[in-house]
């Protein structure tokens, strides 16, 4: 193990380390702690210039309910779910198929197709934006959650295919071979033999894509115009303009907007990190 395990070091090093850990964490999360404390301050604190001192009151319920009463944030959150959940289902579903095809079958253009997905995943959004917006307009899906979902599903299929293909490559191929010898059809092999083994990959990808799409801001801005389709990221930008100096409300709204992916992360931590660090150990 590197660095040397702390238990094997001198007692004074151990003591410093135990003390340094929480201090470093507080410094690292200082901006976040600041915004969390601000979100429960009474607005009189901010008016009196008490930005960093102990809050003069605990206004959690007042501030958070004001956010919901004075803004469309409830709608924005709902819109975010309406975009995020179908995208997760669509992109993960499609990539189970593409990933399987690229991992299991040997055909001449296999690597070309695979690297098309990988490369497409890295392109800047701006090179897609004008044609994608025009296409969405001509399909009558502009300013709808369906339009956003269609694009997100297509784009995320790139990353998901990379992920699924590498995951399936790691499965024992003998399983598929013996099923073929038994005369099981290709679809049944996929559905009954491989799919059940893909559960961890599906879980990992689902949390990752959920977070990516929930946090998307560019496409939310470009493809959604009105409040009834706007996801929460684009909505936050609007609220920032609306509330200007009411930082206790902006802070509370930020916390609300950040909550779903944070909850997802803490509930599914193992899968989340397994997904994110794919490839960080081999190769």
């Amino acid at each position: 193990m590197f660095p040397t395990p702390i238990a094997r070091t001198a007692p004074w090093v151990q003591r410093i380390y135990k003390w340094l850990l929480p201090v470093a964490l507080v410094l690292w999360l200082l901006p976040l702690i600041g915004i969390a404390v601000t979100s429960i301050r009474p607005s009189s604190d901010l008016a009196a210039g008490n930005y960093f001192g102990w809050p003069s009151g605990f206004n959690f319920i007042e501030n958070y309910s004001t956010v919901f009463e004075n803004s469309n944030i409830g709608w924005y959150i709902l819109n975010s779910f309406k975009v995020t959940i179908p995208t997760v289902v669509g992109a993960v579903g499609l990539s189970c198929l593409t990933g399987y095809a690229l991992a299991v079958y040997k055909f001449r253009s296999n690597l070309i197709v695979f690297f098309m997905f990988v490369a497409g995943n890295f392109v800047p959004f701006q090179i897609l934006a004008i044609p994608v917006r025009n296409l969405t307009l001509s399909l009558g899906m502009y300013n709808t959650t369906t339009g956003l979902v269609m694009f997100h599903v297509a784009f995320q299929t790139g990353f998901c295919t990379l992920f699924m293909r590498n995951f399936i490559k790691g499965l024992p191929f003998a399983l598929i071979e013996s099923a073929r010898v038994e005369g099981v059809s290709e679809w049944k092999i996929f559905w009954h033999i491989v799919m059940p083994l893909m559960r961890p990959a599906i879980a990992a990808l689902s949390v990752l894509i959920f977070t990516f799409i929930w946090n998307d801001y560019f496409w939310a801005t470009v493809m959604a115009q009105s409040a009834d389709v706007r996801p929460v990221t684009a909505g936050m930008n609007e609220l920032k303009g609306q509330w200007k100096v009411a930082w206790e409300l902006i802070a509370a709204a930020s916390i609300i907007a950040a909550l779903p992916p944070v909850a997802m992360f803490f509930l599914m931590q193992k899968h989340f990190i397994a997904g994110l660090t794919l490839g960080a150990t081999k190769g």
Partner: peptide, 20 residues
């Protein structure tokens, strides 16, 4: 079989990423 498995994903990806 591989092309049937690939078709929906490739179609979406081509329309929304490659052609644009």
């Amino acid at each position: 079989a591989p092309w049937l498995f690939l078709a929906p994903g490739m179609l979406m990806f081509s329309i929304y990423v490659v052609f644009p």
